[in-house]
Design a protein around this nucleic acid. Structure first.
Lengths: 109, 109
DNA sequence: TACTAGTACATAGTAGCGCTAAGTAGTGGA
DNA sequence: TCCACTACTTAGCGCTACTATGTACTAGTA
């Protein structure tokens, strides 16, 4: 992964995952696949699992264990109320930053 | 500073400063003031100086010392060729991330 | 003179996050 | 038996923003 991208993902990857989970419960391996499909081709698997541990500990998601046809049981994550609030705040923070940057880009300065 | 914003600034703050410097040499204290004027009201002074040290060591800026009417001499930073290249890459990385996120936001997922 | 506020830069230590690397565990096919 | 794929876990590292504190110079003021 490019170094710039790695740094830029800090803080945004969590929001991206929360957004992916909106109305769409998913498990770790699946989320990694989704991300790669969205163009984040070099996302490290370990990164996703560590992030999931974090958002679970922060109480942003509910977790349910389900058997898999092939492989170990899946841990299915779904966004709860607190997670939705966090996602709202994320979009606010993102919007602010995004607007500032678009402004800077247009200024050419 | 909100924790979300702190994390999200990682990787973007450097780009913001490089963008501010485009065609517009400036010194640390001035950059801090500029950032605060742009809405980044809680940017820590130390953060900016540390960042400037970093981009100087990476060779992205040229530095010139100029006396100040009030206070210690200023270190004026101006973007050089390598800095412009880095800024271009920054905008590419930013564009990719920004598009992915806007897409996610519209999907409502 | 002594004190304060503003200007201007520097830096040691801390927290948080994504990455690397390595591991465990289960299924099915060559 | 070996490999590939699925699925999750975790210790250690590098990078960046923050906290806190310090230095240094000027000007105003009590």
């Amino acid at each position: 992964m490019g170094k710039q991208m790695t740094e830029m993902l800090k803080g945004t990857l969590e929001g991206i995952v929360l957004a992916l989970l909106t109305g769409n419960p998913a498990y770790g391996y699946e989320i990694t696949t989704l991300l790669r499909g969205q163009g984040f081709t070099e996302i490290a698997e370990g990164t996703v699992y560590a992030l999931l541990v974090r958002i679970e500990q922060k109480g942003l998601v509910d977790v349910e264990k389900r058997p898999s046809e092939k492989g170990p049981p899946r841990k299915v994550y779904s966004l709860n109320e607190q997670g939705k609030k966090e996602l709202d705040e994320f979009w606010n923070t993102w919007s602010f930053l995004s607007e500032r940057l678009e402004h800077l880009r247009k200024e050419g300065k």
